[in-house]
Amino acid sequence: MILYDYVLSASCYKVRLMAALVGERLDLQAVDFHPGREHKSASFRDLNPAGTLPVLVDGDLLLTESTAMLVYLATKAGGWMGSGAVNAAQVQGWLAFSARLGASLGMARLHDMLHYPVDIAAVRRAGVDCLRELESHLTEARFAGRIFLVGDGPTIADIACFPNVALAPDGGVALDDYPSIRLWMRAIRSLERFIEMPGIHRLHELKPAPEAV
């Protein structure tokens, strides 16, 4: 399974994280997204005419939407999709919400890190609206003794939403005011086989302090 990948991309990280969590090995093909704009090159557009990352190739299957890749990895592995009509529908709702996160918090980050020309005040404001909705939902989940977005365990909904939320400070949007989001992110980072990306570190306290050498 080949993932055309850029290490700083939140969407690429979703797929790397999902693959790690379900134990799927990815052959990572680094694409020079910045500054090379390799994803807009003629040869890359022969692979993905949309000129976007990530791209997942598994035999004859070619996927260009990260949420589709999450569905593929999760369904192959079993679990992670939400069971029953209600949970499955809620997972779809959060996958759509993750697109709003990308268009708000994600764009604010691309503005601050890679100088994307966007209305920075507008995308930050939209990002805060998203964080407030997420915080309210997770607060209600905690009232019911749950911590993840849908049902009792983690689903692809959590993995789809986590990266752009965790990276929000890169786009100038603080996470200080969202206690339920903080505890939700801790729960995700506590999952077995969780992996990091630049800007999202693991919970060091899950392992004993390293010995001095």
Partner: peptide, 11 residues
């Protein structure tokens, strides 16, 4: 709130 700060957490 105490409920937002379980043991082992900083905020």
């Amino acid at each position: 709130l105490s409920r937002d700060l379980p043991a082992g957490v900083a905020m």
